[in-house]
Write a protein that binds this DNA or RNA. Structure first.
Length: 352
DNA sequence: AAACAGTGCAACCGCTCTGAC
DNA sequence: TGTCAGAGCGGTTGCACTGTT
């Protein structure tokens, strides 16, 4: 004998709830409170199974449910949390007041997931779908300059960076997000150490990236190639923008999760190390699509905060018009994420 | 205007997990 | 320790709505 079903299916109503049924359920719960779902339908005069009542209440009738379209902030929070928590919709919903796990799941499957796929991002791993990348094209492209790889080689000779990359990559595969959080916390300690080293080397104007709680991958200055050093100012500008405008993560993700460097919309910090090395050559900022190229490496902010117009310096108003943005606008804005471009103006001879 | 296809969302189903007893 | 109710999840369905032909 297996477990008895939660309710007797015979004679119980299914399908959409009527206003009368909703009213009965609401009135009953107001009087007696939620719970005891198995006996609730009978005592409330509903011809529904307990599970149906529970779902109806938790997903629709609860007074704190927020209806309507998801805002940009909510969407970005979902993506961020999903990158850390995976398909733990209830955990995600717990950080999105007024939204239910079912609603978030539906929204993920019908909107976000499709968009990520169209962008070539694996919605499960939040990483670029390498199977979609035509590597031969990339390798044959005249845009791919070996000098950028030399910069990468220099970076990879740094054991600290390699250790960080390995740690983060391995952590990103951990099922337990707490472990990931712990690893990233360790990362922050290293950042702090490197920050101390860097503070004495870089002028203040080029040292902002360490103040940004979101950008936490340190670049070991001692071993940087000129290519990388050239990137620092651009990078710090964006970091400063994030600081001035406050990152969404500071606002929305509580306590422990704030330790997480966001996966940069599908990129682990280790990915970002490589992206940084190639400077403008790789992952050219999404700011391009709004003519904000001068901001250089605006990767994090442009994806996470998704400014609609104007300069990312105006990031404090990033979300103001978010709800009025169309799906296409969101996608077109993010679709440049995967662009690999090397500006023609970039003279690689300087880096050799 | 009608038919059709595509899309979004509420709701359901079956299963697993968790905590209380 | 086993049982059970509740919670959570992935997958799916059905229907209303919208856009296209």
């Amino acid at each position: 004998m297996g477990r008895s079903p939660c309710c007797d299916k015979n004679g119980l109503k299914k399908g959409p709830w009527t206003p009368e049924e909703d009213l009965k359920l609401i009135q009953y719960i107001q009087l007696h409170g939620a719970g005891n779902w198995r006996t609730l339908p009978k005592t409330a005069g509903l011809e529904r199974c307990g599970k149906s009542c529970r779902l109806r209440w938790t997903n629709y009738l609860r007074p704190d449910i927020k209806r309507g379209r998801f805002s940009f902030e909510e969407e970005e929070t979902i993506i961020q949390l999903h990158s850390v928590l995976g398909n733990k919709w209830s955990a995600i919903a717990a950080r999105l007041p007024g939204r239910t796990d079912n609603e978030i799941k539906n929204y993920w499957n019908t909107h976000i997931r499709k968009r990520l796929l169209r962008m070539g991002i694996d919605p499960v791993t939040h990483s670029p779908r390498l199977d979609l990348l035509d590597l031969s094209t990339l390798l044959n492209s005249a845009q791919l300059n070996l000098s950028s790889l030399l910069g990468l080689q220099t970076l990879m000779n740094n054991p600290e960076v390699l250790r960080l990359a390995a740690t983060l990559l391995s952590s990103s595969n951990q099922e337990d997000p707490e472990i990931l959080l712990q690893k990233l916390q360790e990362n922050q300690l290293i950042n702090a150490q490197l920050h101390n080293q860097t503070s004495s080397i870089l002028p203040p104007s080029e040292n902002h990236q360490f103040q940004n709680p979101v950008q936490q991958i340190p670049l070991p200055v001692q071993n940087q190639t000129p290519l990388m050093q050239g990137n620092m100012s651009d990078f710090s500008m964006v970091s400063e923008n994030l600081i001035n405008g406050q990152t969404f993560q500071e606002n929305l993700i509580p306590s422990s999760a704030s330790l997480v460097s966001p996966p940069i919309y599908g990129y682990t910090n280790a990915d970002k190390i490589i992206a940084d090395v190639s400077e403008n050559s790789t992952f050219q900022s999404l700011n391009n699509c709004s003519n904000q190229n001068s901001q250089g490496f605006g990767f994090d902010q442009s994806v996470l905060s998704t400014p609609l117009s104007g300069s990312p310096l105006n990031s404090s108003s990033t979300f103001i018009n978010s709800s009025s943005t169309t799906e296409d606008e969101r996608e077109s804005y993010c679709s440049n994420l995967m662009k690999f471009e090397i500006p023609e103006s970039l003279d690689f001879d300087d880096f050799m």
